[in-house]
Design a binder for these strands. Structure first.
Length: 795
DNA sequence: GTTCGCTCACTTTTT
DNA sequence: GTGAGCGAAC
């Protein structure tokens, strides 16, 4: 490190003075670069610089925690572009998450000052997969407008298949089948390639047959699931060598982020593409591979040199994040693992605080003590945003939430259900999707009777039969059915009304702003009303979410653009401010860092998790250990590990043993928290049972006072967290809100023909027609438009 | 067609 | 202890 700092300093001198002692040792090209100015290379250490500049041939960058992995990746892209070796469109850069893709785009952009559009092939495996498939859909038996199934749709489809096979849904749950199929897809196996015997575990050996049926059905519906986005690409490349050759030509450089998380399918995909230039650079850390359970193969990274002949391995071992003791503790733990490539992290930072190890009586005490510590920190001015509690399993979060609610300590839970996984958001997008694309049967099923309109299973059955007999999609089948006597009058009318509504909405797609159309759809369909009338307190949040959805929709040009995005990008950043402690799982914390990290629940059976040990034995244990390593390395300045003697496991209290990982911590870098009464006899780590007279506390969880506090907090949190609503209502027109009734039902409009109105987007205009809450307005600048009245104001 | 109540399972989670 | 999902009763 020191050498490289000197080194970059030399480059500086060289530019100004034109001479340098080390200048002569540098390759010409690099000296030239330094002269023309390669500011992005400055500040890199020698390892990083090597990783950036080794462009030819396969390279594996083993980037330990906090060693500047993303920096290397983005600088490498910048370097390729700056040296003119390839254009943005000739670089394939893949990540796992959208978040990572975004970050990379942003950082490359600011590094090079280049437009993001210049890198069309920077994205997630799945996003790039879609892109490839859309281009060549016909070659894999799809039509270009194919849709992507989410997990919900997938399960729904599988359920139908199971039903058709007359299999007991209870004995053979669709979810299990879905997992099995996903597993196969992760391994790049199409139905015919599944090893004999594997499907036998499901439904008396019908597993593979069901998989094949599922694939066939998806083709009929012109859709794919997430796994297919890769699998179908593989098939495309394997069966159409000309297409593959084209991409070999195209992609001059390939970069892969988080390589340790790739599954077999992704590996095969990469290998096929890398056969072209062989310039593939994989960045990853075998010590941070924690996704084995969802198909990631650490083997991919361990075997890199074998699989990519001539490949170089570059290790980044200089850690810029954590202080000495923390790094030493993390290193000692991971050193226990056998199957690893091996790295030695080092830091120039001070030793800092030792890692604190502390035992507690139970999870309530654990939460209380951590809460207390956080409170003290807050009082002394520490930023709670820089503090995190990282748990192994989400049920552990509860104790902390309960405690923090009582204390009034602000916190945020990261990793709950994603925005687009919420029921109301899925329902709403289903309506939007159907308006644009009436052939999406799974979405049609989803909303047919939501809100309740008397169109349940019986009706659906009729529609299904008709659709199958005449090979129509459900919406079309419905159209034909309402013309017959097939349905009871009530259902028939209800269905006819629904179809008419969709026709109405569809007629607006072309000329009505899509946010307004979306609002109209949600109002007229009765969906908003459904939640407004729901006495459940969660309904409020759901309405808020719908509002957020409309707002988010506004960030897209068109409805179609939005929907395409939604199927792949499953998250919206809910920008919330205010200082809060983060509570999240260890998995969720990967890639993040905090000044202070609490690691509770280090107990045998919980961490390492029993199930991990049972199901995967030693490799399971090693993955858990990597998780421990990930956890500790999240901390910059302070890490506190704790365990409890007693924990509620399911319903009952269990006596717990400290995790074996606790004993693997190096004595020299750990401080065992001394309980106030002294624990020092016995040799075990502190049991702070006597620490604090727990008496009064245990009961308070049922007291009315506590419940009140909780309710109050929840309310506050609601208004506070969701923040803007009251404010936003004043600033911009209300979209969906508690008091907005299904607006088309409202008899009279507040406007009359001839009124002069203003619209945010279209400017001033004159009302020409009124239809319920929809106005036809002649705008001075934009001509005649249909708009929803809440979007305009009187001039 | 809807609602109620019983049973079951319960680690991690992205796209 | 709790929530989801399914089947049986209204």
């Amino acid at each position: 490190m020191t050498t490289s700092r000197k080194h970059s300093a030399n480059v500086d001198t060289e530019i100004s003075a034109g001479e340098s002692p080390s200048g002569g040792q540098l390759p010409l090209s690099q000296r030239a670069m330094a002269r023309t100015g390669a500011p992005y290379l400055q500040g890199l250490n020698s390892e990083q610089r090597l990783a950036v500049e080794t462009l030819e041939g396969p390279v594996l960058v083993l980037a330990g925690a906090g060693t500047g992995k993303t920096r290397v990746l983005t600088t490498r892209i910048g370097h390729i572009l700056a040296t003119g070796l390839a254009r943005g469109s000739e670089i394939l850069a893949v990540t796992f998450t959208n978040k990572a893709a975004h970050e990379m785009k942003e950082r490359v952009g600011s590094l090079i000052g280049m437009a993001v559009e210049g890198m069309p092939w920077l994205g997630t495996f799945h996003a790039i997969g879609v892109r490839l498939l859309r281009r060549h859909s016909e070659l894999v038996g799809l039509k270009s407008g194919f849709t992507i199934l989410d997990t919900d749709d997938q399960i729904r489809l599988l359920k139908q298949l199971l039903e058709a096979e007359k299999l007991d849904a209870k004995r053979w749950p669709a979810r299990q089948l879905a997992n099995m199929i996903d597993g196969w897809k992760n391994r790049g196996l199409i139905p015919s390639k599944v090893p004999a015997g594997e499907g036998h575990s499901f439904a008396e050996g019908r597993g593979v047959k069901l998989y094949a049926a599922y694939q066939a059905r998806m083709k009929e519906l012109n859709c794919v699931d997430f796994g297919d986005l890769l699998l179908e690409c593989l098939r495309l490349f394997q069966e159409h060598s000309d297409v593959l050759a084209m991409y070999h030509q195209k992609f001059k450089y390939i970069l892969v982020d988080e390589y340790q998380d790739t599954n077999v399918a992704q590996y095969l995909w990469l290998r096929l593409l890398a056969q072209g230039t062989k310039n593939i650079c994989c960045v990853g850390d075998d010590d941070q591979s924690i996704y084995g359970w969802r198909g990631a193969e650490v083997e991919n990274i361990l075997r890199f040199e074998k699989e990519f002949p001539g490949g170089k391995v570059i290790r980044l071992e200089q850690n810029y994040r954590s202080t000495g003791h923390i790094l030493a503790a993390a290193s000692a733990i991971i050193a226990e693992n056998k199957g690893r490539l091996g790295k030695t992290l080092r830091t120039d930072d001070a030793m800092g605080h030792k890692v604190l190890v502390q035992g507690f009586w139970d999870d309530a005490e654990e939460a209380r003590m951590i809460g207390q510590r956080l409170e003290e920190m807050r009082k002394t001015g520490d930023n709670l945003n820089q503090c995190a509690i990282l748990v192994r399993a989400s049920f552990q979060m509860r104790a902390f939430e309960d405690r923090f609610v009582t204390m009034g300590l602000p916190y945020r839970v990261i990793g709950g259900p994603r925005f687009y996984e919420r029921l109301e958001i899925k329902d709403a997008t289903a309506y939007l999707e159907l308006t644009v694309n009436p052939t999406n049967d799974l979405k049609f099923e989803r909303i047919l009777n939501t809100p309740k309109r008397g169109l349940a299973d019986a009706t659906l059955q009729v529609l299904h039969n008709h659709a199958r007999a005449r090979s129509l999609h459900l919406m079309q089948a419905a159209r034909e059915i309402v013309e017959t006597e097939e349905l009871k009058p009530k259902a028939r009318k209800s269905l006819r009304d629904l179809l008419a509504q969709f026709d109405g909405w569809r007629s607006h797609v072309a000329h009505m702003p899509h946010t307004e159309l979306a609002q109209m759809i949600l109002d007229e369909s009765g969906y908003t009303t459904m939640w407004q009338q729901d006495p459940n307190p969660t309904a409020r949040t759901r309405l808020e979410n719908l509002k957020e959805l409309i707002r988010f929709l506004g960030e897209f040009e068109t409805l179609q653009g939005f929907l395409e995005h939604v199927s792949l990008v499953m998250d919206v950043d809910a920008g919330d401010d205010g200082e809060r402690v983060s509570i999240m799982t260890l998995h969720g914390a990967k890639g993040l860092e905090f000044d202070t990290v609490f690691l509770p629940g280090w107990e045998e059976g919980l961490f390492p998790h029993q199930r991990s040990l049972d199901e995967s034995g030693v490799s399971g244990l090693e993955e858990e250990r990597r998780l421990a390593h990930v956890g500790i390395t999240r901390a910059r300045k302070f890490a506190a590990i704790s365990f409890t003697q007693n924990r509620r496991v399911h319903a009952l209290f269990q006596s717990q043993m400290p995790s074996r990982f606790v004993d693997e911590l190096p004595e020299a870098h750990v401080e065992v928290a001394a309980a106030r009464t002294g624990y020092s006899n016995g040799g075990a780590y502190a049991q702070s049972r006597f620490d604090e007279p727990a008496a009064g506390f245990t009961h308070q969880y049922e007291t009315p006072g506590w419940k009140r506090a909780q309710a109050q907090f929840a309310q506050q949190a609601n208004t506070f967290q969701r923040g803007a609503p009251p404010l936003r209502q004043q600033k911009r027109p209300v979209t969906i809100d508690g008091d907005l009734v299904a607006s088309s039902a409202r008899a009279s409009s507040t406007y009359k023909v001839g009124d002069q109105v203003r619209h945010d987007k279209f400017g001033a205009g004159t009302v020409a027609e009124i239809d319920g809450n929809k106005l036809t307005v002649d705008f001075a600048d934009s001509g005649r438009k249909k708009v929803v009245e809440t979007f305009v104001s009187l001039l």
